[in-house]
Write a protein that binds this DNA or RNA. Structure first.
Lengths: 229, 229
DNA sequence: GCAAATCTTTGATACATATCAAAGGTGAGT
DNA sequence: ACTCACCTTTGATATGTATCAAAGATTTGC
């Protein structure tokens, strides 16, 4: 039992929201935390369901999507190790707008609403972490909107590649790995898979990039920048 | 001087973020607060500028937009009395993604970054208000994305009208007032002014609504709902 | 209350992107 | 290694929405 809790504490400490919080805080949160595995393709929560708490990804990858009744979907975000999701619905006490679906087998931690709300009642450090988390999310969401609404397909893809290039300062300069299947990225960029594929080829034809499966080499960064302006 | 501060305290108390906070908190915030008037059309802050604090609308109406260098713009939000804006850039300490432009003559309060950050350092009630404010904003932003990305023009306009209908529980049932110029609403719904105009006429032709200037009567709510599905 | 500026509607046309269909790849499980 | 399922590419066509242009309708400022 105690070791169970200790594992949860460790996992929480590795997440972006809860890292660096006092061990006592994590201990109290861990009591209201449960772990669950989700197989590839399973739905963690669906649009319109009530929020029961916040989810933290321990392992695996998930997509957060908005969907129509007819089955159209749009990927809003792809989350993985250390990310958390479902905060907005929990904190506003409203129904989930997004659906969360496992893209690979996942291990998730679930911190219950009550536990978090109670802790938040008197824990100022936690409140500050949450503020940082929410404002960052809001900022990035605004940035996504900017990319989707202001640019045409060619510019959106160019911007996406440049953003990835910046995020992956680790890998060999001038090369990125697509973070998910192309169809999902296309969806996040608000275009069809087919159109994404064609757009990538256009960028190749213009000598800006070279595509090799999920690997993209940026041949002409300055040119990309001009397209993404 | 003291009366100046008192006025700021009153205004802050009328805003959605700061209302119901202890008078002492508001007093401290008021010290770092300045008031400014902005004429119609003037820019409060532009995209890419550094955040200096948070803005609270005392009177007037503003648009928050994302813009391209070429001058294309998209309205992200229309703010007015009691609303505040600029939180995300301030709290993440990043540059403004949005531009804020006065749609009418405005009176704004500006709470400086330092003042707010300092107060936030030890004021838990304020932190909780900020969390509520941010999560609500994030939730609504997600909802906007849903409307823009999942529906075609006809559906977006239908959804917009239904949302307004719900917000305006005050006015005579089945009637709404457009909250801004049509061109701005069109932009918020990610379509041209021309297309918005045509879409409105289509909804009239189909017997769902009746348009009279900025007043829209909902003739067939159920039909609208079907279109907005 | 009138002129000027600004907003809105309408029409004709062009373009970006979606959709449908089918072939080519790639990877997982046996 | 082989098959089956799934992902990706390519092609042909359809459609939604933007753009350009100009006439009406409001609102603003003097």
């Amino acid at each position: 039992m105690a070791s169970h809790l200790q594992l949860h504490v460790d996992t929480l400490a590795r997440s972006s929201v809860f890292s660096d919080l006092p061990i006592e805080t994590l201990g109290r949160l861990a009591i209201g935390t449960s772990e669950a595995a989700f197989a590839r393709g399973s739905v963690v929560f669906g649009r319109g369901s009530a929020s029961t708490g916040i989810h933290v990804v321990d392992a695996g990858q998930l997509k957060l999507t908005i969907e129509t009744i007819q089955g159209d979907e749009h990927v809003v975000e792809i989350v993985q190790d250390g990310d958390c999701f479902g905060e907005a619905a929990m904190l506003t006490n409203r129904l989930h707008l997004l659906s969360a679906v496992a893209l690979s087998d996942c291990k998730l931690l679930h911190v219950s609403r009550n536990t978090l709300i109670n802790e938040l009642e008197h824990n100022h450090a936690l409140a500050q972490r949450l503020i940082a988390n929410l404002s960052d999310r809001l900022y990035r969401r605004t940035s996504d909107m900017e990319n989707i609404l202001l640019r045409k397909a060619l510019g959106r893809v160019a911007r996406f590649i440049l953003d990835e290039l910046e995020r992956e300062s680790t890998s060999p300069s001038g090369q990125i790995q697509l973070p998910a299947r192309k169809g999902l990225i296309a969806s996040k960029l608000n275009m069809t898979q087919e159109h994404f594929s064609r757009t990538l080829r256009t960028l190749c034809a213009r000598g800006k990039i070279a595509v090799n499966g999920a690997t993209i080499d940026v041949v002409n960064e300055e040119g990309l920048r001009r397209i993404a302006a």
